[in-house]
Design a protein around this nucleic acid. Structure first.
Lengths: 215, 215
DNA sequence: TGTACATCAGTGAACGCGCGTTCACTGATGTAC
DNA sequence: TGTACATCAGTGAACGCGCGTTCACTGATGTAC
């Protein structure tokens, strides 16, 4: 196969070893490749360090190629954030596995995963919440966010012994969300330099859960 | 004075009526004028919608002028954010006036002002906290932030009956900060569409203060 | 009070750059016969 | 199985644009005499 030779002379055959590109001419799944490139760039250079040109370079593709898959730059970012939110949601759900229903420990587990996502996928997190929202404004993002918040509300309701989402459940859920959301930002901005490590974080989360969920 | 005629033909004599420019040739206080222009642009177009060229246009000055007062674009943003943080701090302090020492009401008042700042000066708030930190990284900003946090810690200590900033005071203060910080973001991102108005906000803040400050 | 002069805050033109997007195109691929 | 063909995912060159920053300059201002 001279495919490989060709690939080696291409400018952007991916620096980190993981393959973003499949074959010589047709890509295989360029849409996914570009989303992954977008994600990487946002993680590496920050939410505003992303450019279409960079993504193309990383995916090893001409700068015109994305427009076969996305309307414009904004669509690329939205698609990437949506994917990230699905991951986030899935992680939160799997963090619940094995923890008894109706216990504050479930709420703590969700919070812990929320914070971890904010750290692990800092760029995506900031892109969604850091004030780029105006640019990204999109019903799909809004909907995905509410769906995720629903997971929290369900657990809060269970803890409070409610069978449906009452206004009080919303209120408590919102308190918890606010706390965990702010905590994520402060951790990621490193405002918590002297606040200890992982144990301290877990204790903070369960402490808050208890304080908010106690009637 | 033909000064006025000249000014009228200038392209950027300020759209909103408020004077950013003083005289025909020398400006008077261009540094302040540019900081104000920067602030306006960041508020109007978002943290990443700011450009030096725009600021010059708004201040009615050539694009080379800022470099007599600031090292580069970043310095302009830092200067503007620093000014904003001083306002923020002053507002928090004056929100305390007349409220009895050692009461949770003082903590609530600070929180309320924090949230209001995030809404009133949304652009500045996001610029400081929304993930532009990497670009803005600056010791002066860090120091200003810690000074502001000190106000909270002092009040928390008073509420807990401590005379100094113990680890537990820091812990509680940090919980409160996280909550109020997250609340600010969620309000500003309009994730609280169904969460009621000002009264609800105040009740949320005092509720949290009580829950966190009760031993 | 009037004049000569140094200062330095502003000018305006220019620079090189990377960006987002478009265009006519090409050639790999899958399908119908 | 082999061939003709339509499709359409990619190319690569080009576009116009606004950006941040620099440069030699100019002329208003304050100060010394």
């Amino acid at each position: 196969m001279k495919e490989d030779e060709k690939t080696m002379t291409k400018p952007a055959t991916n620096e980190s070893g993981q393959a973003l590109k499949k074959s010589g001419y047709h890509h295989g799944d360029l849409r996914a490749g570009l989303i992954e490139a977008t994600r990487r760039l946002v993680e590496d250079k920050g939410p505003d360090g992303f450019s279409v040109s960079d993504a193309c370079r990383l995916a090893g593709v001409s700068t015109a190629a994305p427009y076969k898959h996305f309307k414009d730059k904004n669509e690329m970012l939205v698609a990437m954030v949506l994917e990230g939110m699905q991951r986030h949601r899935a992680n939160m759900l799997s963090a619940l596995e094995g923890i008894p229903k109706g216990t504050p420990a479930r709420v703590t587990a969700i919070g812990s995963e929320y914070v971890n996502f904010a750290r692990r996928e800092n760029g995506v997190f900031r892109l969604k919440f850091g004030g780029f929202t105006d640019r990204l404004e999109d019903d799909r993002l809004q909907a995905a966010g509410e769906e995720t918040f629903g997971i929290v509300l369900r657990e809060v309701a269970a803890c409070l012994g409610e069978t449906e989402i009452t206004p009080e459940v919303r209120r408590r859920g919102f308190m918890l969300w606010s706390f965990v959301h702010g905590l994520s930002f402060l951790l990621v901005d490193k405002k918590l330099a002297d606040m200890g490590g992982e144990t301290e974080l877990e204790s903070l989360l369960s402490d808050i859960a208890e304080r908010v969920l106690v009637d």
